[in-house]
């Protein structure tokens, strides 16, 4: 059922997904804890609403949050896709490789230094992600190349080590600080700032585009490292670049939104069921699909128990696991 990879199909698919994303985005704009009519939403968006509150709610609360969900969703899904190809392991995911645990520990260190979690310190969290990435990378390197199984093992062990360190630090912190961190660790998109969006937008966009430049190389890498080398791919260079780019995307996403699980696993596999294993198709599908899935999840998180809110990480996990199992079984049957 997969589509043939032609430029025409890639464009059509991308445009269809972009249209879907816009539709989902507009739907998400219209829904929230406060009921606004479609007219009020539109007026609020254009700044012409009769009530200034509608404009504040739509433009300053909902819109930035939806944009954040899209960016984080795209970043996590693309980095999951790339890591799965790189490691030829369907279970690879930023979380499995310990990258997000590093970012989380970074955020908690930031709390000591700056007194806040995610809002003020995405850069420290990002630094944590990058340090972890470098550490796992060094562990996973053999004879100048990344050995995929060593890398996965190094990641898993680093992830559990860092989680243990996080739990240890949590027992030392005051109750007040722990609440904030616990919230952030569950995945939270509610406190986005303009500054975060301005940092995130170009980095995520450029990161995804840069990964797309390696789409063909990733296809070849799926055949195996030796085969790829025979076919003229500079394997070490591609591995390093893809690994660093995927870490960059994850670090950015985790630093602003905390631990939103399942996306890096669910969306790429969904994408493969639809467009197959060619990364020229798969990467844009994952990017836009990830944006759509996280926007939907966050809309659910915002509205399901309104005016209270659910942590979006819980929504992606609870909704993601059954969908994933269903799709896998259907594909197998």
């Amino acid at each position: 059922m997969t589509l043939a990879v032609t430029r025409r199909n890639v464009v059509t698919l991308t445009l269809a997904l972009v249209a879907g994303l816009l539709l989902v985005g507009l739907g998400a704009l219209a829904l929230g804890g406060v009921h606004l009519s479609l007219g009020e939403v539109w007026g609020g968006l254009r700044g012409t609403a009769a009530q200034p509150e509608a404009s504040t709610i739509v433009r300053e609360i909902r819109l930035p949050r939806i944009l954040l969900a899209m960016l984080v969703g795209a970043a996590l899904a693309v980095s999951g896709t790339a890591l799965q190809a790189l490691l030829r392991n369907p279970l690879a995911d930023p979380y499995v490789l310990g990258i997000s645990s590093g970012a989380a520990l970074g955020a908690i260190v930031a709390l000591y230094v700056g007194g806040r979690v995610a809002a003020a310190s995405p850069l420290v969290a990002f630094a944590g992600a990058l340090l972890t990435t470098a550490w796992v990378y060094l562990l996973g390197r053999r004879a100048g190349r990344l050995a995929s199984y060593t890398l996965v093992l190094a990641g898993v062990i680093t992830a559990s080590f860092l989680s243990a360190v996080i739990l240890f630090v949590l027992t030392l912190l005051s109750t007040r600080d722990v609440r904030g961190i616990a919230f952030w660790l569950m995945g939270d998109l509610s406190v986005v700032t303009d500054v975060q969006l301005r940092i995130l937008l170009p980095v995520v966009a450029l990161g995804i585009l840069a990964l797309y430049a390696f789409a063909k190389d990733l296809n070849v890498l799926l055949l195996g490292e030796e085969e790829a080398a025979h076919l003229g791919v500079n394997v070490a260079r591609v591995q390093t670049a893809v690994y660093v780019l995927a870490s960059l995307l994850t670090g950015m996403a985790v630093s602003v939104s905390g631990a939103i699980g399942y996306l890096g696993l669910l969306v790429p596999h969904l994408g493969r069921l639809v467009v197959g294993n060619d990364h020229r198709m798969l990467l844009p599908t994952a990017a836009l699909g990830g944006a759509i899935v996280l926007t939907l999840s966050d809309t659910l998180a915002r509205t399901a128990v309104a005016p209270a809110e659910l942590p979006v990480g819980a929504v992606t996990a609870v909704a993601g696991a059954p969908v994933f199992i269903y799709l896998l079984r259907r594909a197998a049957g």
Partner: peptide
Amino acid sequence: NPSLEKIVA
């Protein structure tokens, strides 16, 4: 995690 939009409204 109060709903910011509810507060604004």
